[in-house]
Amino acid sequence: MHVKQFLALDEATLMAIAARLAEQVSLQGNSATLTLYLYGELGAGKTTFSRGFIQALGHSGKVKSPTYTLVESYQLPPWQLHHFDLYRLADPEELEFMGIRDYLGEHHIILAEWPQRGSGWLPKADITISIDYAGTARSMTLEALTERGRGLLETL
């Protein structure tokens, strides 16, 4: 299964799906850098999805929008999660100046909103998550682009 689709009728469902994905990541026991791309228009629910995902990995506080800081990092043993929002990035090469390579490695998770603005400098995605407006609900499309991504989606 390379693609899975969900219809999230409300915010709680969207967060629950994110939490389920986070559970699968914990269960999989693969410690290489995991990269997730989040696509969706402003207000679609990318940050909500991120909140569900990050909290399911054990974070109990706030998940602040990284729009102004570009990245917010979380220590979630054994993981280090880096929540990027590249909305304000004008040139993908900015990621190199920011030291993107320091954010990669064993037990690192990259959760990137607006990944298209970092194209060529962000690592390739294991899974892309697209959130689209469906009236007030949201249609979610998760696509696996690597073996590892496929493994995660199969059990979701």
Partner: peptide, 14 residues
Amino acid sequence: GESIDDAAGEAFDK
């Protein structure tokens, strides 16, 4: 207290 997600100015900009 503080914002748990977007800042007010960010909400304006977006």
